[in-house]
Measured scan of single mutants.
Amino acid sequence: MAAGGDHGSPDSYRSPLASRYASPEMCFVFSDRYKFRTWRQLWLWLAEAEQTLGLPITDEQIQEMKSNLENIDFKMAAEEEKRLRHDVMAHVHTFGHCCPKAAGIIHLGATSCYVGDNTDLIILRNALDLLLPKLARVISRLADFAKERASLPTLGFTHFQPAQLTTVGKRCCLWIQDLCMDLQNLKRVRDDLRFRGVKGTTGTQASFLQLFEGDDHKVEQLDKMVTEKAGFKRAFIITGQTYTRKVDIEVLSVLASLGASVHKICTDIRLLANLKEMEEPFEKQQIGSSAMPYKRNPMRSERCCSLARHLMTLVMDPLQTASVQWFERTLDDSANRRICLAEAFLTADTILNTLQNISEGLVVYPKVIERRIRQELPFMATENIIMAMVKAGGSRQDCHEKIRVLSQQAASVVKQEGGDNDLIERIQVDAYFSPIHSQLDHLLDPSSFTGRASQQVQRFLEEEVYPLLKPYESVMKVKAELCL
């Protein structure tokens, strides 16, 4: 049975990233139509530049190519590739079939990587351009969430054990800070992308030097003109047959890092959902379990974690691919890159769409948070109580021993009897502590235990987050809708 299948058929496997999760716009960027249309555009740009620099290419040939950029006979191309065992030459023939007058000058002087690699770089750039505003929107939604809850005390956790208090907004800023680093890295790697350009079979530009009869300047002009037509500021000066596969490492490393950030955020949300302090959106008709109707599973956060793990592992592909590119190139890269580049971007696209949807509907339960604080705060307040007693004339050592005994009794009630923490009640009825009984409410005010959390939130948002989001103001209103 021949390899390949009808990918629109229910009898043929289709990647869930495309069929179930990723956005239509990201799927289109990695589609065959987008790819092969870009090949034709690159052939047109090459012909236009070659004509401008004096090669015998007519206006009629150029116009014929322009008129057929979208006229792609995919069936013919597939048949040609089956016959020739070469995808680029299959599309040269297919393009030439609908451009008979231009057929002889299509791909003039070029090698397969002229269309293959340059198209990949265009796709990487455009895919990054799709991700950047999506990530900015996630940051914006979380920034709104953090600002609104900047002063809401909550129990902090280290080692997932109760620690000092923080605020809900401050905790959210930990998430935002990681995503801001990801946004900066995505922008950097996007701006650092260079075009492969017009380089020939081993990167020496020998074929173009021959076409222009040894004119170095025209060869350099050709490279520059096509690079500018493709919208790049610069091209690699040095290439082998391909652009260095280190570029793929750079791009997928940034995406993998984004995956790590999203995994951490969504894990926190899942843990908070278990504590009943916070939940992701839950639709009115949504079913959490087929057997347990009360369940409210954090399905979206779980999906993000599941896909983020996949995204983090994909960076190993370009690392290994770059390491086995012998001399000017081997074909070890080809099949692998067809999979890992598309999957990385479709996965990143999915987790950003999902995280935006989550961040637009996060639900906080202040009463649950308050109750958990009441359970733990008495123990945390013991040092403040000791200091207040010393100020009232008591002995630190005597007070410490009193607190120690009462704390152990209260802990026994919590752990052995399943009761509430009654340390404060014990202190309130103990005559030894009568000098500070009137101060206990103040000493137990949760806001006095959150330090500068709310001020940190305000400063972080104003100095770091809002300036970073400013270039994306025009796209901030787009909502994230999930079908599944």
Rank of each mutant, 00 (worst) to 15 (best):
D182K: 13
I351E: 12
S31P: 06
V138P: 03
P16T: 14
L46H: 06
G200W: 07
I123L: 04
C113M: 01
D6W: 07
D6E: 12
L44D: 09
L362S: 07
F195T: 01
H442A: 00
T119G: 00
L53R: 06
S306N: 01
Q164W: 08
P24H: 01
T154W: 04
P293G: 10
L179K: 06
T154Y: 00
A110V: 07
K477Q: 12
G104S: 05
D430Y: 08
G393H: 00
F145V: 00
C172Y: 12
Y114H: 00
L311M: 07
I237S: 12
Q456K: 07
E376W: 12
C173T: 07
L440P: 13
E80K: 01
R309K: 05
E283G: 07
V324L: 06
R83I: 11
L252F: 12
A110G: 13
S412C: 05
Y432R: 12
Q177N: 03
K276Q: 00
D248H: 15
W175S: 02
Q456M: 11
F195G: 10
S207G: 06
L377M: 12
V429S: 15
F195N: 02
L142I: 04
K233C: 10
V138A: 10
T330L: 01
F36A: 14
L423H: 12
L346W: 12
S407A: 01
L258A: 13
D129V: 06
I139D: 00
T167V: 06
S67E: 06
S31L: 08
I57H: 12
R452C: 06
N357R: 09
K218D: 04
F282V: 15
V475I: 02
Q428I: 12
V324P: 04
N357Y: 15
L193W: 01
G231V: 07
Q375M: 15
S151F: 02
D178G: 02
R125Y: 00
R149Y: 01
Q63V: 05
L130K: 02
Y472V: 06
D73V: 03
L319E: 10
L275G: 07
G214K: 06
A344V: 03
Q409N: 10
F95P: 03
R85S: 08
V251L: 12
M312L: 13
M65T: 00
E462M: 12
V478R: 15
Q375G: 07
R270A: 01
V168Q: 01
E462K: 02
S301L: 02
E473V: 06
Y365N: 15
F36G: 04
V405S: 02
E370D: 03
L124H: 00
L484H: 08
F232M: 14
V254Q: 09
V168T: 02
F212S: 03
V390D: 02
K415C: 15
S151K: 09
N297K: 10
A90D: 03
A146V: 12
P162T: 07
N118H: 15
F157K: 14
T204N: 03
S12F: 07
M292Q: 11
E370K: 02
A322V: 05
Y432C: 14
K134R: 14
G96A: 04
L484E: 13
D268G: 15
L44A: 13
G393A: 02
D6V: 13
Q455M: 00
R374C: 03
P435L: 09
I123T: 11
D11R: 06
R372A: 05
S140P: 04
Q397R: 09
D73G: 03
L108Q: 02
S257Q: 09
I385L: 13
L319M: 12
Q455K: 07
L46D: 11
I358W: 02
E343R: 10
G54P: 08
E343L: 03
L155N: 00
L165D: 08
D32L: 11
M316N: 02
A411I: 15
R245N: 12
P133V: 09
K470N: 07
E48Y: 00
M26P: 11
G288T: 06
L42S: 14
L179I: 00
N71T: 07
G361C: 13
R37D: 15
S140I: 01
E328G: 07
E80C: 12
R329G: 05
S359E: 09
S448H: 13
